[in-house]
Amino acid sequence: MEQTLTRYRDRDLLLPDLVEAADRLLGEDAPDARTVRYYQTLGLVRAPSRYDGRKAVYGYHSLVQVLAVRLLQAGGHSLAQVQVALAGVPPAELEAMVLAELGQPAAPPPAPRPMISAELAPGVLVVLDPSRVPEPEQVLRRLQRSLHPSSQEPT
């Protein structure tokens, strides 16, 4: 089976799956389940994205973080150093670093969420990022109303 990190990108991982994935990718440097939970108490690994009954379901980024911690530890760094080093690293950057460390090709970045734009009035183009503006369509309508208080609902 192909052992690439990126194949786990959109997978849900139960804790045993996460450990198994780390095991496949790292070999003997892989952590056990207890250690992964311990990393969570240090803020090194993101909490499970959800729970399936009493089973924690982890996301891809948790796996990336586990690998980053183990790779740094294998390089002779203490957990204290690792904790400082990993704080504030953007997820995409960390993934790229882990891929480079594993000698795997950098994968294309995940498709960004499409932006929404609207021409509120001739020559007035508004662009909204739906990942950062809740209910963007309503916002657009409000904006349009403020430009043309008497106008009808936008089509």
Partner: peptide, 13 residues
């Protein structure tokens, strides 16, 4: 009014 998708320019790492 048209709603259409724009592809934002996010720099690849």
């Amino acid at each position: 009014m048209n709603l259409r998708d724009l592809t934002p320019s996010i720099e690849a790492s």
